[in-house]
Design a protein around this nucleic acid. Structure first.
Lengths: 154, 154
DNA sequence: TCTGAAAATGGACCTTT
DNA sequence: AAAGGTCCATTTTCAGA
């Protein structure tokens, strides 16, 4: 599954705008629309392209607050961690979750309507389990850069 | 720009798979494809839908490491912070960046090929400016949840 | 809501290296 | 073989009746 510079250029383009027609993509990278079609199909089959999603403006849906939470656990037993992972995965307000090495165990990015919803969520997510030693809350004042763009050139 | 439950159901669906045809979306939410078309068009014009993007597998492009960096500044002058924002925005390996209140100033999510690339980046991003007091590095052992999904129902 | 034109997708087939 | 190009059928989009 080697990716040549055509593939990388296509990945760059569709990560910016997945709505671009294969004809337009073709003229951007100097390829016929059929070749573009084949390459996109192959990269999708290979799992390089996992899918296409719409990006929704969180503000406009009332999610005005982005919160970063760092959660440290009492007990790091694998089954307990797995249970926490499942809880986080199932919570729609948890937009992202990373399990990290070092001092804190999970880093969460949460999208909430207001502080009240956040405090409510901390009860459900953190205190329900009885396994959270402490957590730290960072409130984003400005979402400088967001998205899921993967570098293609460097 | 009031969003009814049809709109929310559509937003939910296109955030999961923007490739779904309007006909399919229609049968999912009990609407004709024409109605789906009109609603999607309107929400795009209103900026509720900001666009559609392809999700690429970072691992498959060789970006095997996700790093979370917390950066604290010496001097919080507005022009210096703006300069940092621009630097972070321009760096492809900085996937996300939040400016936060409280003890640390920026939280970054970085996608890097290996630790060497990260240490190289810290030099370029953090030490070039001469304005970074300290930074903390958290290495993600497991990207439990990623994406840009905005809750639609709750 | 239905109909139809324009556009986009995706496969078949042929050619080149 | 592997990959590109052209052509064509099918599907999808999207505006007007």
């Amino acid at each position: 599954m080697p990716l040549d510079h055509f593939d990388l250029a296509l990945l760059d383009a569709v990560q910016r705008d997945a709505g671009t027609s294969q004809l337009d993509l073709g003229s951007q990278v100097n390829l016929s629309s059929a070749a573009v079609n084949r390459r996109l199909k192959k990269m999708t089959e290979d799992g390089v392209i996992r899918g296409t999603v719409a990006q929704v403006d969180a503000q406009k849906l009332g999610y005005t607050l982005t919160v970063i939470a760092q959660v440290e656990f009492e007990n790091e037993r694998l089954d307990l961690l797995d249970a926490m992972k499942k809880t986080f995965l199932a919570c729609p307000q948890v937009q992202q979750c990373f399990y990290v090495a070092g001092e804190c165990d999970f880093v969460l990015i949460l999208l909430v309507r207001d502080m009240e919803q956040y405090t409510q969520l901390t009860r459900e997510l953190f205190f329900q389990s009885n396994n959270v030693k402490r957590f730290k809350t960072l409130v984003s004042m400005s979402n400088v850069k967001t998205g899921v763009f993967v570098p293609t050139l460097d």
